[in-house]
Lab assay of single mutants.
Amino acid sequence: AGLEKQLAIELKVKQGAENMIQTYSNGSTKDRKLLLTAQQMLQDSKTKIDIIRMQLRRALQ
């Protein structure tokens, strides 16, 4: 149950990062740093999601 909860949280983080990227990508240059931060968050989240999914698969075997 813990892994499913972690996965749900990470999927929400990923969605939030995608929303932030959309918001900041057509903003001013001061938003550039926020855009880069959001892109890093998205990448980190995708990595965590992959790891959690692997752990889930392993647990189900």
Rank of each mutant, 00 (worst) to 15 (best):
L11Y: 09
R32G: 05
R32E: 08
A8S: 12
A38L: 13
N26R: 11
I51A: 15
S25P: 06
S25V: 08
Q6K: 04
Q55D: 07
L36G: 10
K5G: 11
R58W: 03
L35K: 09
K30G: 08
I21S: 11
S45A: 15
Q6M: 06
R57I: 04
G2F: 10
I49H: 00
Q43A: 12
V13N: 14
K33L: 01
K33P: 02
Q22H: 07
G2K: 13
L3K: 14
I52W: 14
A17V: 09
A38Y: 01
A1S: 13
I51G: 15
K14R: 06
L3V: 06
M20A: 09
R32F: 03
R58D: 07
K30L: 02
Q61C: 14
A59M: 11
I9C: 05
L35Q: 05
K33R: 07
K46C: 02
I52T: 01
M54C: 09
Q6W: 02
Q61Y: 00
R32I: 04
L11N: 08
D50M: 07
D31I: 15
A38E: 00
Q22R: 12
L7S: 07
I51T: 13
I52Y: 00
M54F: 04
S25L: 06
D50W: 02
L7T: 09
N26G: 11
D31H: 14
V13L: 07
Q40N: 09
D31V: 15
A38N: 01
L34G: 04
L56Q: 07
S45E: 00
E4T: 07
K5I: 03
T23S: 03
L42D: 00
L60V: 06
Q40Y: 00
A8Y: 00
R58A: 06
L11I: 04
L60W: 12
R58C: 02
G2I: 04
L34Q: 03
A59E: 09
Q6L: 12
L3R: 14
K12N: 02
S28V: 05
Q39Y: 05
S28K: 13
M41F: 11
L42S: 00
I51P: 00
E18V: 11
A17S: 08
Q39I: 05
K30T: 06
I21T: 13
R32A: 07
I49N: 01
Q61G: 09
I52K: 04
R58H: 05
A17T: 10
R32Q: 06
A17L: 15
Q40M: 09
S25W: 02
D50P: 00
K48G: 00
I21K: 10
T29L: 06
G16H: 13
G27P: 08
A59F: 12
G16D: 11
Q39K: 12
S45D: 00
K48L: 03
K33C: 08
A17G: 07
R58G: 11
L3T: 10
K30Y: 02
Q39D: 08
A38K: 00
T29F: 08
K14W: 00
I21P: 12
G2W: 09
E18W: 02
Q43F: 02
A8E: 10
I9Y: 06
T47E: 13
L34M: 12
K5Y: 07
K30A: 04
L42V: 06
L35F: 06
I49E: 00
N19G: 08
I52L: 11
N19H: 09
Q55V: 04
M41T: 04
Y24K: 13
D31M: 15
L7R: 06
E10F: 00
E18M: 04
A8C: 06
T47P: 01
L42I: 04
N19S: 09
Q43T: 08
E18L: 09
T37K: 15
L7V: 10
K14N: 02
Q61A: 14
Q15K: 05
S28H: 10
L36A: 14
D31P: 15
R58Y: 05
K5P: 02
N19E: 13
K33N: 12
N26L: 04
R53G: 03
T29D: 07
Q40K: 12
G2E: 14
T47S: 14
T37R: 15
R32M: 03
Q22E: 12
A1C: 11
I9G: 14
M54S: 14
K5S: 08
D50H: 14
M54R: 14
T23K: 15
